[in-house]
């Protein structure tokens, strides 16, 4: 469809969005919940990138984090526990034109949906995946999750949790086709925003583990890190994020890390304290499944008719020609 110049200008004007164009409802997360900080950062990103709300979809599973799509004035899909990733893959395959975001929690992604997480990394479809990792099940009221630190008391581990936690960064970095891995903490909004932005711009499966506070069930858990900026290891590099002058006055524990270095990324990921924040790994050259599979092709009626008839031909028994009928059987 062609447009007049006026329409074009009007549309340009229309397509400028404000923060409130992405806001929907009043979040029902607890006061002080890290999810609020993630929501604020994401809404800011949408505005700054001028994402068309109708072309943007947030897909989630089940858990506190997965309420996220309800608070976005975009398309959203609040699915079932653990299955946000395969739903998002289906969305992306059917509609590569959409901006796809996934909100998932440590139970959703690393426990019930762990199989999908591993394979989603392999598929490397272009989507931004936010792992809201508060290291506890919140919605079901405080049970140990796969990322809960060893010895944590919870309703299912009243004498302390029995198993060492899994490390979402190490796991993600260990899977074939990994293309973007970052870590953020909810209490440094500037870096949270910068990391989500970098993830959004990466073409592929961008995985951000966001260390997220749960004031309701684990109010003390992150206090030591919150109060001691030196326990945050800021990854700084010209190919990754460059920390601002003002931030580096507070967070002085900087480490130069080139995100193209996978082995070094794995080493950094295995350090739990200080907590690394920044882009651990980025490889823009990993093939994206939706492109490998040629998603979003135009399919005309004609193409389908021709294709179908060609297939019918393979299985068709044609009526015999008259001359063949008169031939004697050998």
């Amino acid at each position: 469809m062609t447009m007049t110049a006026t329409q074009c200008l009007l549309q340009m004007y229309d397509e400028h969005y404000d923060l409130e164009d992405y806001q929907s409802g009043v979040p029902r997360w607890c006061t002080g919940c890290g999810d609020n900080a993630i929501l604020a950062a994401v809404q800011r990103l949408c505005r700054d990138e001028n994402l068309r709300p109708e072309k943007t979809a947030f897909i989630s599973g089940i858990g506190c984090s997965s309420r996220f799509p309800h608070y976005m004035k975009t398309y959203g899909f609040h699915g079932i526990h653990g299955r946000a990733l395969p739903i998002a893959e289906g969305v992306k395959m059917a509609r590569p034109d959409l901006h796809v975001f996934v909100n998932t929690g440590d139970g959703d992604c690393c426990s019930i949906g762990a199989a999908h997480w591993i394979h989603a990394i392999r598929y490397n479809m272009n989507m931004t995946v936010l792992l809201h990792d508060n290291q506890i099940y919140g919605l079901t009221k405080m049970q140990a999750s796969p990322t809960t630190p060893l010895g944590t008391k919870s309703n299912t581990t009243p004498r302390g949790s029995y198993l060492a936690p899994l490390n979402p960064l190490s796991i993600t970095l260990g899977v074939q086709n990994v293309s973007f891995v970052a870590q953020a903490v909810d209490w440094i909004p500037e870096m949270l925003y910068d990391i989500i932005k970098a993830a959004y711009h990466h073409k592929g499966f961008s995985f951000i583990r966001i260390v997220q506070r749960c004031p309701e069930w684990l109010p003390e858990m992150f206090e030591p890190w919150l109060h001691d900026p030196n326990r945050i290891l800021v990854l700084n590099h010209e190919n990754g994020l460059q920390v601002s002058a003002s931030l580096s006055k507070v967070y002085k524990n900087l480490q130069a890390h080139d995100p193209s270095d996978l082995n070094r990324a794995r080493e950094i990921a295995s350090n739990l304290d200080p907590v690394p924040v920044g882009i651990l790994y980025r490889n823009p050259d990993v093939p994206r499944y939706e492109e490998v599979r040629h998603a979003g092709q135009m399919r005309s009626t004609d193409l389908i008719e021709k294709g179908l008839n060609a297939e019918f031909d393979k299985f068709t028994v044609w009526p015999q020609e008259t001359e063949a009928q008169t031939q004697p059987v050998m």
Partner: peptide
Amino acid sequence: AEDEIAACAFAIGASYA
């Protein structure tokens, strides 16, 4: 898909969109 559950979820996502 990686399993039957994912196959169903993938189809649901594709249908939805």
